[in-house]
Structure formats: structure tokens, C-alpha cells
Design a protein around this nucleic acid. Structure first.
Length: 723
DNA sequence: GGCCCTCCAGTTTTT
DNA sequence: CTGGAGGGCC
């Protein structure tokens, strides 16, 4: 068979990785070096050339998007259906494993997945049930604690609690887990932990999968946490080959448990592994690439990589020192308009920022300029309230023990089951170690409720029972439609007269369409409904925005990872914002910020623009930041510093920040103007921000690069104008 | 049940 | 300054 097409168009290193003999391998893949291509070709190579069955290969990614892309490209390359292949996310594959071995995992067959929102509610209820002060022990923190422990592979009983905080959190963890177990609920971290435990503790299951998967391929390995690493080790066993792909310079998720160290651990634990470096970059101009290289060179303990390109130098990186965030946004919009005038498309532009709060001013300015934009990271389809309500009905129809679903819909729409009644149900459940459904049934049969409450609760339970009787044999879409209508959910939103409610009605309609077009695979003998519910939990779905509209893309630096754009703006590149204030104390966290900077820069293909604001309104207060150290780490000859293009000579509107008593002429008599760079004997260089008074007695506010902002009397300050 | 008030926090996100 | 959450009140 002619397999040369598998190597066509690859560079030497890529070929080396694709066609390597069967061994463990670490592919250190720099930004834009074609790593997905290598992974996909490697899989095809193992099948076509090494004659492995597609069934014997497992490929793992972090996001559904990446998994879908990989699957699509493998199919395209090989020209055949590879549906039976295990390509998926860690969570998706763990779920698949637990479905197949639910008994070994100690789970009920119909176990449901708890998303983080549901998890938080359940943690909150647990805290209340334990009579712990919610103010002192916020549910968010407890949730964080629980997930952190699970990510480390720890159960509550593994934890030695030495202080009150740990003891409290431990007991919340314990009670929360009991509650999950009773209700057949599995949170995201639990999927991984439990799948790991099954593999670890059950020789039969472990050996079955070890015999099956001869090759494991893991993408974005720098993002793996401890439990994921342990998972890979277990599946690899002694005899199977592991290929990991990653880039320590793009590790930006340490704060949520990712262990960059896993790259080094891999080399330790798989000593035969060969390391292949993909260092040729096919994305950015050499100017951009070199600047990014210089920035990241400031980090220590790197595995080491030198990205290069044989592309052209392109244009310099523009650095704009904005007066404030509005000025920054105006500048960005101006450059976008210039880009459009040059015949380019809006969708090729991305505006990146460190924190979501920064998007507002950018949005307003884009809106004002009439430029379409799309924000990444909005509410996704299956995360919407009305969709979650509808799914909760489907869940409780499928599984009465699902307490999270019970809580969610027992009184939605309201049917007179208030806090008093629910309190009794929860109490009974707690006292007798029952699920909420069982407790409700108990209270009814034992006549422990007032007439009205009893009737209401009974009505709800009969509704669910009836829905099950009527629906189970119907097609999924029909089931969903009936559940939405008979439950009164649809009517509830229809009766509300607001735009929001209208959208919700539409979304419910769309949910029915989604179930119609959903194609169950029947894997692990899952009924279509169960499969759809898992799909909804594991893949929250895209945002609804028209993805294909020609629009500027707005997103955080984090969500830009893996993407590329011809024109990239990095905004708010200021000390305190980026690197963020919180990360400036610790070198490890600062280095992660630097990697984030590296990730941002390497998103740009042709043109990169970096902006920072001398002053910025943050939390209702004017703050003065100096430009980020990361800019200082870039080679000066790669940069073209742009400063205050439009001279500010008039207050622009009534909200002007300028002192009203003085005119600009008198200000200009001092010899300085806003935005001007000046040198002070002791404070160093800075930028003129504001002034008050007139003539030589006037005071002038300067944002010094190193000292922050200060007010000085012009007559005494001995300022030297620069430029 | 819904409205209004106060209080508080305030990177980054996927599953 | 904002948004979200919780508490109090009709």
C-alpha cells in the first residue's frame, strides 16, 4: 500500500514523530508547529503502516472541540469511518468506561453527571444540612476544595485534617460525597477519580483495557493533573506505548490543578521515551516569533525549545500607550478600520484581554463604530436556566434518585411546594438516609404533611410517574416535547411577557430540535435519553451566537489558546493587570503569566498590536499602572511605539477628567501637554496624566514608570520633556 | 412569589 | 463602579 501521503508535506521533525518506531514518545510542540497534524498522521500511520486496529488506539484531549477536530481529521485523512475508535476527552472516555463498568464502579446504571453549577448547589445544600455557617465557609471554596482533592486522587477518608479549615472542608466533602452516592450523581472530577479507581482496583477491568489499547496518545499534556497522569500510567501498563504532545511554555492552567511537571515526570516514568521537538513555526512572522521567544526566555526550568520560521519578518509589533481605557479602545477600533480599509476581513481580527471585565469598554466602542463582534465564553446552550430545567425533568423521569434534579424542578413551575414542605422532605431524607424522592413518598404515606402540601407534592410525583409511563417508549424528541409541556415549564415561560422569556421559549423549542437531530451511538448499551443527557452534561454546547458571522473575536488570553488570527490585539498589557496583581508575588505564578503572554503573542499571524493604558477605571477607581514588564522583555527593534496619536487639546465631553478652572493654553504655558513623556531627576521617566491650576504654580500629575503616579508642582519639579 | 434593598467581592475555564 | 446573592417585606 502506498502510504507516502502520510508523510507528504511534513518537515523532518514531523516525519520523525509520525513514522517513529513503536515506542514512547514526547513530542514537544511549539506554538504553531503543526502538532495536531502530527498527531493525526501518527494515528493514521499506526493503523495503515503498523497494521494496528483502530480499536487498539486511544487518543485523549481536553476539550470536545479538540476531540472533534482530531476525529474529523483522522477520518478525512484515512477516508474511513473511525467511530469505534476511542478518541475523546478525559472526561468523555472516563464516562464511557464507567458506563461499561458501572457495577465495578459501585454506581447505579442510570447514574447522572453533575455539572459545576449543580455541584455548587449541592455543596451549598450540604453545608446547610450540616449546620455550618455559609458566610464563614463559602460553598464556592468548599467546591474548590473538593475538586482539588479529587484531582489529586484523594477521598475524604484519605485526608488528615490538622486545622479547623481542613476539618470543616473535609466533613463537607464527606457529606457531599455521601449525598452524590445516594443520588447516583457523579461530578466532573469524580468521573476521573472513579474511573481511575476502577482501573486501579479491578484487575480484570485493568487488564482488559491494557490488552486493548496498545497505543495511547495524549494531547496538551502540560494541562494534565495528577489523576489524569495516573490514568495514563495505569492504561499504559508495561506493554503499551504512550505518545504525549505538549508544550511547557503554553502551560497556563496551573491554577486549576494542571501540573506542568507531568512532562518531566513522563520522562522519568517512561525512561525509554524519545523526545522530538517541533520547532518550526508556520504561523507568525519572524518579528512576532522572535519577540515571543525573547519574552519566554525569561522563564526558568524550561524544557527548552527554539521556535523559528522561514517566513518573512513582516511589520514591527505596534505598542500603543493609551491615555485611558477609552483611548485604548478607540485606538484598537481605529486600527481595525484601517485593517478593513486594506481589504481584510473582520473575522480575522481578535482582541485579547486578561480579564473579562475589560471587554465592556471595547464592546461599547465597537458598537459605537458599528463593527460586529463576538465574545467567546458566554453562556452556553446547555447551561441556560430553561434548558437545565427541562433536562432536570428528563433526568428525574429517568432516575428518581437524582436529588439534584428533584430540587431543581419540584417547584418549577411553582406548584405550591414551598420552603416549609421542602424543609420537611430534606430533613426526613437526612434523618433516614433516603433520597428526596423516597423521603417525599415516606412523608406522604405516613401522613406527615398538611393537606395542601401533601396534595402538591403528590401531584408532582404523579406527574413524574405518568411522564415516565407515557414517554419511555417514545422517540427522544417526543419525550422531551411532552416533558416540557406537561410539566408546565413551557407554559410558565410563555405566560411571562418579557423578551427574556420569549428567548427561553425559543430555546426550549430548540432543545426539542436538538434531541431530534441527536444521533445516539448506542455505545455501552445506553438508551438514547441517557446518552443525550450525558452529551448535554459533557458538552455544554456552543454559544448560540452566529459563529459564521463576519465579526471581530473578543476573548480572554486563556480562551485564545489553540487559535490563530491574522491580526491580534493584546490589550491592557499593564503591571497589575497583566501580569495580574495577584500573581506578582510568586515567581511561579508570574512565570505562568509570562507563558500567557507568550500564548497571546503567538496567536498572531501577520500583525500584532499591544496596548496599555496609563490610567484605567477599575472597581470604580482611577488606577495608574505602568506598562507591563513583558513589553520591556521584547526586543526594542521589533517594536514600534505609538504614543497619543490624537493630541488632547479640548475636553471631549462633560464627563471630562480635566480640571475645569484652567484652560489648556495656560497649561501649555508650562511647556507640557497631556500624554507627554517627561524625565524627573529622582522618579525617572513618566507620562503626564493630568494637571490643575495654571502657570508655574500649577500642579501636574505624572505616572512614573517605576514609582506610579504622583502630583508635582511644575515650578519645583525640574522636569525634562522627552521627545 | 416577586420586588427591592444592602452588602460584598472583584483573574483566568473546561469538563 | 458593577453584578450577584441573600434577606426582608408586601
Amino acid at each position: 500500500m502506498d502510504v507516502s501521503y502520510l508523510l507528504d508535506g511534513l518537515n523532518d521533525k514531523q516525519r520523525q514523530a509520525v513514522s517513529a518506531e513503536e515506542k514512547d514518545m514526547l513530542v514537544l510542540a511549539g506554538a504553531g508547529s503543526g502538532k495536531t497534524r502530527v498527531l493525526v498522521h501518527r494515528i493514521a500511520w499506526l493503523i495503515q503502516v503498523m497494521n494496528h486496529s483502530p480499536l487498539s488506539i486511544m487518543a485523549v484531549t481536553f476539550t470536545n472541540k479538540a476531540a472533534a477536530e482530531m476525529r474529523g481529521r483522522v477520518e478525512q485523512l484515512m477516508g474511513r469511518d473511525v467511530r469505534q475508535m476511542w478518541i475523546g476527552t478525559f472526561h468523555g472516555l472516563a464516562h464511557r468506561l464507567l458506563r461499561a463498568h458501572y457495577k465495578d464502579a459501585g454506581l447505579p446504571q442510570g447514574f447522572q453527571i453533575l455539572d459545576s453549577d449543580d455541584q455548587l448547589r449541592l455543596v451549598k445544600r450540604t453545608i446547610r444540612a450540616l449546620n455550618i455557617d455559609e458566610k464563614q465557609w463559602p460553598a464556592k471554596q468548599a467546591q474548590w476544595y473538593i475538586n482539588g482533592k479529587k484531582d489529586e486522587g484523594l477521598r475524604a477518608h484519605h485526608i488528615d485534617a490538622y486545622d479547623v479549615a481542613e476539618q470543616t472542608h473535609k466533613s463537607i466533602y464527606q457529606a457531599y460525597q455521601e449525598s452524590c452516592d445516594r443520588s447516583g450523581l457523579v461530578d466532573f472530577a469524580e468521573l476521573l477519580l472513579r474511573a481511575h479507581e476502577v482501573l486501579r482496583d479491578n484487575k480484570y477491568v485493568r487488564e482488559h483495557y491494557q490488552r486493548r489499547f496498545r497505543h495511547l496518545l495524549v494531547d496538551e499534556f502540560q494541562d494534565t493533573n495528577s489523576i489524569q497522569y495516573a490514568w495514563v500510567q495505569l492504561l499504559a501498563g508495561k506493554d503499551n506505548r504512550v505518545t504525549i504532545v505538549g508544550d511547557d511554555d503554553q502551560s497556563i492552567y496551573g491554577w486549576r490543578g494542571a501540573q506542568v511537571e507531568n512532562l518531566q515526570h513522563f520522562l522519568r516514568d517512561f525512561p525509554q521515551a524519545e523526545t522530538v521537538r517541533l520547532e518550526q513555526n508556520y504561523r507568525s512572522t519572524s518579528t512576532i516569533l522572535n519577540a515571543a521567544n525573547e519574552v519566554i526566555a525569561n522563564n526558568s526550568d524550561r524544557l527548552g525549545k527554539d521556535l523559528w520560521t522561514d517566513g518573512s519578518a513582516g511589520e514591527p509589533i505596534r505598542v500603543y500607550a493609551a491615555f485611558n481605557e477609552q483611548d485604548e479602545a478607540r485606538y484598537v477600533v481605529g486600527r481595525i478600520q484601517e485593517w478593513l480599509d486594506q481589504g481584510n476581513a473582520l473575522q480575522d481580527v481578535a482582541i485579547l484581554y486578561r480579564s473579562n471585565a475589560q471587554s465592556r469598554v471595547l464592546e461599547e466602542t465597537l458598537l459605537y463604530a458599528g463593527l460586529a463582534y463576538r465574545i467567546y465564553g458566554g453562556l452556553r446552550f446547555f447551561d441556560r436556566q430553561e434548558i437545565k430545567d427541562a433536562l432536570a425533568y428528563l433526568r428525574i423521569i429517568a432516575s428518581r434518585i437524582d436529588d439534584a434534579a428533584f430540587e431543581r424542578v419540584v417547584n418549577t413551575p411553582s406548584r405550591g411546594i414551598g420552603d416549609r414542605t421542602l424543609g420537611l422532605v430534606r430533613e426526613a431524607a437526612r434523618d433516614m438516609n433516603l433520597t428526596l424522592w423516597e423521603a417525599a413518598r415516606f412523608l406522604i404515606t405516613e401522613n406527615r404533611l398538611t393537606g395542601r402540601a401533601k396534595k402538591a407534592l403528590q401531584g408532582f410525583m404523579e406527574l413524574i410517574n405518568q411522564l415516565e409511563d407515557e414517554c419511555t417508549d417514545l422517540p427522544l424528541a417526543k419525550q422531551t416535547d411532552i416533558a416540557i409541556r406537561r410539566s408546565g415549564l413551557m407554559a410558565m415561560y410563555q405566560s411571562e411577557k418579557s423578551e427574556k422569556a420569549e428567548t427561553r421559549v425559543e430555546n426550549l423549542g430548540e432543545l426539542v430540535s436538538a434531541t431530534e437531530s441527536f444521533m445516539p451511538t448506542g455505545e455501552e448499551d445506553m438508551p438514547p435519553l441517557a446518552e443525550f443527557l450525558a452529551h448535554a452534561a459533557l458538552e455544554a454546547g456552543d454559544e448560540q451566537a452566529d459563529e459564521h458571522q463576519d465579526a471581530v473575536q473578543l476573548m480572554t488570553l486563556h480562551s485564545a489558546k489553540g487559535l490563530e488570527f491574522p491580526l491580534v490585539f493584546m490589550t491592557g498589557v499593564e503591571e497589575g493587570l497583566f501580569p495580574s496583581q495577584q500573581s506578582m508575588g510568586e515567581s511561579g505564578r508570574l512565570e505562568e503569566e509570562r507563558r500567557l503572554c507568550y500564548v497571546g503573542m503567538t496567536r498572531a499571524m501577520q500583525r500584532l498590536v499591544i496596548t496599555y493604558a496609563e490610567s484605567r477605571r477599575l472597581y470604580g477607581q482611577e488606577q495608574f499602572h505602568s506598562k507591563s514588564r513583558f513589553i520591556g522583555e521584547m526586543p526594542t527593534d521589533a517594536l514600534e511605539e505609538v504614543r497619543m496619536q490624537t493630541r488632547v487639546t479640548q475636553p471631549t465631553d462633560s464627563r471630562s477628567r480635566f480640571h475645569s478652572g484652567a484652560s489648556h493654553e495656560t497649561f501649555e504655558q508650562t511647556g507640557f501637554q497631556l500624554g507627554q513623556r517627561v524625565l524627573h531627576a529622582t522618579f525617572g521617566e513618566g507620562t503626564v496624566l493630568n494637571y490643575e491650576g495654571s502657570g508655574p504654580q500649577s500642579r501636574i500629575q505624572i505616572n512614573f514608570d517605576d514609582q506610579g503616579s504622583k502630583w508635582l508642582v511644575v515650578a519645583y519639579a525640574k522636569l525634562t520633556p522627552l521627545r
